[in-house]
């Protein structure tokens, strides 16, 4: 696994997409901190932008890279190494490359302009989203033979998580506002990794009030340090299940 990881990472270190992502994040974060006089206000804008952008870029990049390296994956699969080692090395390398770009593009400006717990939490939430969407992207690329179809399903998945899911959740809460829906709000939020990341960061910057009734519920459930850890833990589960399914699929897949 370490050999596949090492050389895939060497290849990815010069990948234009990864470099462009790092520069884009740097320009975006630095720009927001410079435009907004108040670092905390810039931080809030960054939360909204990065929690949508990071999953999108990670998902599309993972899917495209997986398809573009199919023949090489085949060549690796005829070497005397286990398929699980190939997939583990590649997953880890893609995640490392995107995380390094994120550290450069988002981590550096956060460290310079707003060092502290909130910045650390925003970075951790985005880092976990990278893991989640690398795993999801790999699974999608393994289960769809056609590249265009794979990318299409990836975009729909992202759209569902970023917009549709929240809209449906809000509509549900509005429609059932006269009933005790409190027990359902947290489990429903846990079904969306981007929501989990948003909740974890927003509660830390004490903006639960902006999230209305659900905010109050989240505050009660996730408001403590343990609650935030629980949210991040749920995100780890979100990264684990697609990765585990991807390993199972790859072991049996005809290449």
């Amino acid at each position: 696994m370490t050999k596949v990881y090492k050389y895939t990472l060497v290849d990815l270190a010069r990948n234009r997409f990864v470099l462009a992502f790092a520069v884009l994040m740097l320009v975006l974060a630095e720009g927001l901190f410079r435009i907004e006089g108040d670092a905390m206000k810039a931080m809030l804008s960054l939360v909204q932008v990065t929690l949508a952008l990071v999953p999108l870029v990670t998902l599309v990049f993972t899917i495209v890279y997986s398809y573009d390296t199919q023949e090489f994956t085949q060549l690796l699969a005829v070497q005397p190494i286990r398929r699980s080692a190939i997939l583990a090395g590649r997953l880890a390398a893609i995640a490392t490359a995107v995380l390094m770009a994120l550290a450069f593009g988002l981590g550096l400006p956060l460290l310079v302009h707003l060092p502290g717990m909130v910045s650390l939490l925003l970075f951790a939430a985005n880092a976990l989203l990278v893991l989640v969407f690398v795993a999801l992207g790999t699974l999608l690329a393994l289960t769809q033979r056609d590249k265009a179809r794979g990318v299409g399903i990836g975009l729909v998945t992202w759209f569902l998580f970023v917009l549709v899911y929240d809209a449906l959740l809000m509509a549900l809460m509005f429609a059932l506002s006269d009933r005790p829906i409190e027990p359902w709000v947290v489990p429903l939020a846990a079904l969306n990794p981007i929501d989990l990341a948003r909740i974890a960061v927003m509660l830390r910057v004490d903006l639960a009030a902006m999230m209305g009734y659900s905010g109050a519920v989240y505050q009660r459930f996730f408001g403590s340090a343990q609650g935030i850890l629980l949210a991040l833990g749920l995100m780890v589960l979100w990264a684990a299940w697609p990765a585990l399914v991807a390993f199972r699929v790859f072991r049996r897949k005809d290449l």
Partner: peptide, 18 residues
């Protein structure tokens, strides 16, 4: 068992940056 097998595929594609 693949230790003793060599394979030359029809289409060769390698990591571009290496």
């Amino acid at each position: 068992y693949r230790q003793r097998i060599g394979y030359m595929p029809q289409i060769s594609q390698f990591p571009p940056a290496l």
